[in-house]
């Protein structure tokens, strides 16, 4: 299986896109679970008043090839980014860099099939989210990313 795509969808549409791309059955479990892990990671922050955006981003990646996603962040807000994968044994990460490429996050963690990073931007502007499958038993690993702000 070789796919390289970047989807930005609500949950149901993400499911539809993946179904089309990879055939029904396997895709459902994959995106469903990746999203579940990301949203599970979000729960503590939701309790602290973060609003989770109801759109999700995702795709699949080979291990060791980080993917940058540009994002406009606003000083004054606080953000959490949550990443999940359905692949047991995979190690994933998400980190936040500023427009000059400097690590900008205030906190990050990795736990099993979940990873997250928190940032309170010092400036308004462009930031880069770097999502990565650091290691995986699979050739390509499906991931999903959600974020919240307050």
């Amino acid at each position: 299986m070789k796919r390289d795509f970047f989807v930005k969808r609500t949950f149901l549409a993400a499911f539809a896109v993946l179904t089309l791309l990879s055939g029904a059955g396997t895709a459902r479990g994959t995106i469903d679970d990746a999203l579940s892990f990301a949203l599970e990671a979000a729960q503590p922050a939701v309790k602290e008043g973060f609003t989770v955006r109801e759109e999700y981003w995702g795709g699949d990646l080979p291990a060791g090839q980080p993917k940058p996603i540009a994002h406009q962040l606003f000083k004054g807000n606080e953000y959490w980014f949550w990443m999940g994968t359905d692949c047991k044994g995979a190690k994933i990460s998400v980190h936040v860099y500023d427009s000059a490429g400097k690590l900008a996050e205030d906190e990050f963690w990795q736990k099993g099939q979940k990873a997250a990073a928190r940032i309170r931007p010092k400036r308004t502007g462009t930031y880069y989210l770097l999502v990565e499958v650091e290691k995986s038993p699979d050739e390509r690993t499906v991931w999903s990313l959600a974020y919240g702000f307050r």
């Binding site: 609003t51 406009q72 989210l129 974020y147």
Partner: peptide, 14 residues
């Protein structure tokens, strides 16, 4: 092409 466009609420929150 891989830009996350914020929702308006993010701006209004600030």
């Amino acid at each position: 092409e891989q830009v996350i466009v914020p929702v308006p609420s993010e701006v209004f929150a600030v």
